[in-house]
Design a binder for these strands. Structure first.
Length: 263
DNA sequence: ATGGCCAATATGATTGGA
């Protein structure tokens, strides 16, 4: 079973690319971020016609997450617990049934946090603290759990083309990376890093300054796995070719294959 | 050598992204 994450940077602008990619790579479950679309305007029918159930949690203009699944949803829950005042559409959780039992998936769009020394960075760190509170509760279920999304975190130097240029950025600041490490240290596995320690496994290239042509990339989209999911991990990949398509997102899909079978 | 984009919003400059 293949589970993927992709920040599409507008579902409306990316629908053609998404449908082509679904048809070419046949993922079973896809977590989307930055759909930038209210739920009523989400192009649900076209995606359902491709064989997917669709769960959405969007808002006008910004943010927005969704989960596409060939398996039916047993449960769908929006919003990360811990702040009722937070109205950003950044978190959607679903449960599906596999032959091996329940599988829980979350689509995560963690705040960017720039510029630092503003309320935006405080919001990012608070959001990460909320995640740090939520994850142990989910790990206690002892289920396969996959937290997939755009974390807006560069975990380490080998995940950025020029560490010095990014030293003071909200994606790479010590406080950001420390919270990401704390998250992993709760007992999660970074799927890409379980498969490879190679540098330069980027998932994002800025639209500006010829970043794609120069391979000035970042690794900021991650799949974090509970032990029960990590135990069944078979393969991991980054669909870099999608950045070279016409009208690309600035992010590309990241995926992992698991020894789960659809029921 | 330098600078370079893209999307949403009611159609023009702003905001947000990373």
């Amino acid at each position: 079973m293949r589970i993927a994450s992709w920040n599409v940077n507008s579902i409306k602008q990316r629908l053609g690319n998404l449908l082509a990619w679904l048809s070419e790579t046949r993922p079973d479950i896809v977590c989307l971020q930055e759909t930038k679309c209210v739920d009523d305007a989400f192009p649900r029918e076209a995606i359902e016609a491709a064989g997917y159930n669709v769960a959405v949690h969007g808002q006008k203009t910004f943010n927005g997450v969704a989960i596409l699944s060939k398996l039916p949803f047993d449960e769908v829950t929006a919003r990360l617990p811990g702040d009722p005042e937070d109205d950003h559409a950044r978190f959607l959780e679903a449960v599906v049934s596999t032959r091996e039992g329940a599988l829980r998936i979350a689509s995560i769009y963690l705040p960017n946090g720039n510029p630092p020394q503003t309320e935006k960075y405080a919001y990012k760190l608070k959001w990460m603290e909320r995640l740090l509170h939520y994850v142990p509760q989910r790990l206690a279920l002892e289920e396969p759990l996959i937290l997939a999304g755009d974390y807006n975190v560069i975990p380490a130097e080998e995940d950025v083309y020029d560490p010095e240029a990014w030293r003071g950025d909200a994606l790479f600041l010590p406080d950001t990376r420390a919270r990401f490490r704390a998250l992993v240290h709760l007992g999660l596995t970074d799927a890409v890093r379980a498969a490879s320690d190679a540098p330069g496994l980027y998932t994002f290239w800025d639209y500006q300054a010829g970043a794609w042509q120069r391979n000035n990339g970042l690794r900021i989209d991650h799949l974090l796995l509970s032990p029960q999911a990590a135990d069944r991990l078979k393969a991991v990949g980054i669909d870099k070719f999608m950045r070279g398509r016409e009208r690309p997102s600035d992010h590309v899909p990241v995926w992992a294959d698991f020894a789960f079978k659809p029921r």
